[in-house]
Amino acid sequence: MQEEKCSHSWKMVNIAYGFVITEKCYQTDKVATYFTFEHKPPLEEYREGDHFWNVMESAQSFRFDLKCTKCGLITTFNELMGLMMCTGCDKTCEVDIIREKLASDRTWVYVAFGFLPINERKQLTQEKILILENYFNQRRKSSKSRIKIVSHEIVKNFATCYAEVIKDIDMLCLTAPEGE
């Protein structure tokens, strides 16, 4: 009952760093992602049933929970693989329609996405997405702009989506300092 009455004030807790591994089976073309706490990301190919998995990408990432500083409620986010900012790449995508509608209020739209394959892995519930949105809005402190977080389920096509994923990969700066 305490949970329902509390106007939660969220804090990020239980932060643990690791890697998000993306792997592909070249026999079935299936792509899967998972999180590992190993200090060095695994690179080995391995066989699993009908699949022969090869690592395509590993990105440093982290896991966390959110804890209410008022009532102590902890919400876990083990199903969250990452966040990406909608950049409006497809006018027919529902995420972009929301982005267009909210842009004049300076409300920026982010997509919370889970692990692959989507239909085989537990995904974030709408309730958890709302908690995540509240957390980032509380953290921002700003009255001038807000964050709206939506589910990946409304992205029209992930394969052609140009949203900016927040991840520590492809970050190598390829430009030399000015004057050199």
Binding site: M85, F136, R139, V165, I166, K167, D170, C173
Partner: peptide, 22 residues
């Protein structure tokens, strides 16, 4: 929020992180 972030990174995805935290 309202921090000044010092970095050598220049990738487009830095913008999404700065925007998220304001």
């Amino acid at each position: 929020p309202d921090d000044l972030w010092l970095t050598v990174q220049t990738h487009t995805n830095t913008v999404s992180a700065v925007n998220l935290i304001d």
